[in-house]
Amino acid sequence: MEGKKAIESLTVMNEIVLPNDTNVFGNLMGGRLMYWMDIAAAMASTKHCNSASMTASVDNISFKTPIKLGNVVHIEAKVTRAFNTSMEIHLKVWGEDVLNQHQYESNEAYFTFVALDATGKPKSVPALIPETKEEQLLYEGALRRRQVRLILSGKMKPDEAAELKALFMPQEV
């Protein structure tokens, strides 16, 4: 299976925050944003693996700045690494006050998706080819983030996480 470039999975999604999307403070509800982020991540993963895929996990979503009623939400999603049947997708979210021409960072997260075949079983995905310095850094960190996810889900024992141990344990000389 031939590898694919990270840029090939790039998905940009835009939404306007309407009254039905907000809480009592006039801010975009977190659940609505997560819904939109999940859709963007699904599109990015599908572009990479050319098949259906499903959400396997969502890392911490940090809400840095609220997005107000009437503002535009910009979501950018891109695959950062492909494993055997899963893909890590990095998402960045900005808000934009169009009237005042001001953009601001709102959120960032990592989602993991699993590619599925026609019967709904996990299937192999193409390798990812990072090209830019940022893509390379995200690619290299993805293995450590994956090990954290696997430990937290009980699918890996901490002493099996070689990449993480290398960060915290002194190397023998």
Score class of each variant (00 low, 15 high):
Met1Ser: 15
Glu2Trp: 07
Glu2Cys: 05
Lys4Pro: 06
Lys5Glu: 15
Lys5Cys: 12
Ile7Glu: 09
Glu8His: 11
Ser9Thr: 15
Thr11Arg: 02
Val12Trp: 03
Met13Arg: 00
Asn14Cys: 13
Ile16Met: 10
Ile16Cys: 04
Val17Ile: 09
Leu18Trp: 08
Asn20Ser: 13
Thr22Leu: 07
Val24Gln: 13
Gly26Lys: 11
Arg32Gly: 00
Arg32Asp: 03
Arg32Leu: 02
Leu33Phe: 05
Leu33Gly: 06
Met34Ser: 10
Tyr35Asn: 11
Asp38Arg: 06
Ala40Tyr: 03
Ala42Ile: 03
Met43Gln: 10
Ser45Val: 01
Ser45Pro: 11
Thr46Asn: 09
Lys47Trp: 02
Lys47Arg: 15
Lys47Asn: 07
Asn50Glu: 14
Asn50Phe: 04
Ser51Cys: 10
Ala52Pro: 01
Ala52Phe: 06
Met54Arg: 05
Met54Ala: 09
Thr55Leu: 02
Ser57Cys: 04
Val58Arg: 01
Asn60Pro: 05
Ser62Asp: 15
Phe63Trp: 02
Ile67Met: 05
Lys68Ile: 02
Lys68Gly: 00
Lys68Ser: 10
Gly70Tyr: 05
Asn71Lys: 05
Asn71Glu: 12
Val72Gly: 01
His74Phe: 04
Ala77Glu: 00
Ala77Tyr: 03
Lys78Pro: 01
Val79Asp: 01
Thr80Tyr: 01
Thr80Pro: 00
Arg81Cys: 08
Ala82Thr: 00
Phe83Gln: 08
Phe83Met: 08
Phe83Cys: 08
Phe83Asp: 05
Asn84Glu: 11
Thr85Cys: 14
Glu88Lys: 14
His90Trp: 03
Leu91Asp: 01
Leu91Trp: 00
Val93Met: 07
Val93Thr: 12
Gly95Glu: 04
Gly95Met: 08
Glu96Phe: 08
Glu96Thr: 15
Asn100Thr: 13
Gln101Glu: 14
His102Asn: 15
Gln103Pro: 06
Tyr104His: 15
Tyr104Asn: 12
Glu105Thr: 14
Glu105Asn: 14
Asn107Thr: 01
Ala109Asn: 04
Tyr110Gln: 08
Tyr110Val: 15
Tyr110Ile: 12
Phe111Arg: 00
Phe111Ile: 06
Ala115Asn: 10
Thr119Tyr: 02
Thr119Ile: 06
Thr119Ser: 14
Lys121Asn: 09
Lys123Gln: 10
Ser124Trp: 08
Val125Thr: 10
Pro126Trp: 05
Pro126Leu: 03
Ala127His: 08
Leu128Tyr: 03
Ile129Asn: 11
Pro130His: 03
Glu131Asn: 14
Glu131Phe: 14
Thr132Val: 14
Lys133Tyr: 10
Glu134Arg: 13
Glu134Met: 13
Gln136His: 11
Leu137Arg: 12
Leu138Pro: 00
Ala142Met: 03
Leu143Ser: 06
Leu143His: 01
Arg145Cys: 03
Arg146Lys: 13
Arg146Ile: 00
Val148Ile: 15
Gly154Ile: 09
Lys155Glu: 15
Met156Arg: 07
Pro158Ser: 07
Asp159His: 08
Ala161Met: 12
Ala162Cys: 13
Leu164Cys: 09
Lys165Pro: 06
Ala166Gln: 09
Met169Trp: 09
Met169Val: 14
Met169Tyr: 14
Pro170Met: 13
Pro170Asn: 12
Gln171Val: 10
